[in-house]
Amino acid sequence: MKGAVLGDAGLHMAAQDNVVTAIDDLDAGTEIPYDDRTVELAEAIPFGHKVALVPLEPGDAVMKYGETIGEAVEPIAPGEWVHTHNCESRRGRGDRTADREAA
């Protein structure tokens, strides 16, 4: 597998990634060691879903595979679930084209 498994819980696919992928169904409170710190899960994270390792502000790039997979649309604290409720794509946004034309 590419990347490093942190604390037998999260897969960190590239060094610059700011999220890890849960490699099991993880309970709230699970501790993930990261960069001399411990990230404690604020909520239960299902297998395959992502957890923030660092604080993210709206507009910050969310990084996985060493690449940008989208941007945070609200503040996300370390240990919080990162998914469609707080992270959005930057691509294929016809809805934004309409906004731009209206502006």
Binding site: Y65, E67, G70, C87, R90
Partner: peptide, 13 residues
């Protein structure tokens, strides 16, 4: 999305 993929970028990569 239920399987953990959030954006098209993530799916594509």
């Amino acid at each position: 999305q239920e399987g953990g993929l959030t954006t098209i970028e993530e799916k594509s990569l």
